[in-house]
């Protein structure tokens, strides 16, 4: 009985921890701009200091913000798709085939997962300007792919190891080549794993900030985190907190939707990828 109460209290604490700051951002997004300028401490908007949907309307009518949302969605989706295709090929080879250099692949993937991203922005900035990729979509898609590949390869090879071997062998006995066995048997079985890897990859691309601020200069390719951080408003010394909060809420909606629909898959992917590998 005592144990039961402990777990209920624990659950409440976890939910408070996770959701209180989110509730705070939502609450902040309903404070009026005037109230923010004059100072309005407290969790909830004071009486008469509420803004209704004004902040959301203002953010949504801001061209730069709308463009940033579009950039983020486009860049993240393309990077996710390409990264998952490349990672699926590699993970299949790692989980199923014996070949020279397998260890090297895993070592490189591990090393890249730990790479200090900031140390690349200088040379990349220089290179991208030289080849015309600076401030373009591909200029961000390429680094996002490179940095999501390790996570995708780990998650996928973990999933691929669970797939029954015999089915592939059966296909090969029936006369299928290695490639046919891969395409016709393994791909349908692996689809759930591929999907999980895609979600984790999308989260990374959506969250990225370092590349977003250093490899773009205009709204041409600037993604949403960078755009939020550069959003200053009329008074540079007092940032428009409630407008930013409204923008932050909008930027978080896709994440919340994905989490709500796929929570079970994401947890499975995170734990299998990192611990079981």
């Amino acid at each position: 009985m005592r144990n039961r109460i402990g777990i209920v209290v624990g659950c409440i604490l976890i939910m408070l921890w996770c959701l209180l700051p989110v509730a705070w951002v939502i609450s902040l997004s309903f404070k009026s701009e005037a109230a923010i300028t004059n100072g309005s401490p407290g969790f909830f908007p004071a009486d008469g200091a509420g803004a209704g949907w004004d902040n959301y309307r203002a953010v949504w009518e801001n061209d730069q913000f709308r463009r940033a949302i579009l950039n983020s969605i486009g860049i993240s989706l393309i990077a996710t798709m390409l990264s998952v295709i490349v990672a699926t090929l590699a993970a299949y080879a790692i989980a199923r085939l014996e070949f020279r250099g397998k260890k090297a692949v895993l070592t490189i993937a591990l090393a890249i997962a730990m790479f200090p991203v900031v140390s690349l922005v200088g040379p990349l900035f220089d290179m991208w300007r030289a080849v015309g990729l600076y401030d373009t979509w591909p200029g961000l898609i390429i680094p996002y792919m490179s940095f999501t590949l390790p996570l995708a390869i780990w998650t996928l090879s973990a999933f691929f190891r669970e797939i029954p071997w015999e089915m592939e062998q059966a296909a090969q006995v029936d006369g299928a080549t290695s490639w046919q066995a891969f395409r016709k048997v393994i791909v349908p079985l692996a689809a759930p794993g591929v999907f999980t890897a895609a979600i984790l990859t999308f989260f990374f691309a959506w969250n990225d900030f370092v590349f977003g601020i250093s490899l773009t200069s205009t709204e041409n390719a600037r993604p949403i985190p960078a755009s939020l951080s550069f959003f200053v408003g009329s008074d540079p010394f007092n940032r428009p907190a409630s407008l930013l909060a409204a923008g932050a809420v909008i930027a978080t909606i896709p994440i919340v939707v994905i989490v709500l629909i796929f929570q079970r898959k994401i947890v499975a992917g995170l734990t299998s990828g990192a611990v079981k590998g």
């Binding site: 989260f203 969250n207 900030f209 985190p225 932050a248 978080t252």
Partner: peptide
Amino acid sequence: LIPYGIITVVSGFA
């Protein structure tokens, strides 16, 4: 999963 998925920049602002 919500703090995990949320953009770090948003967490910083919050």
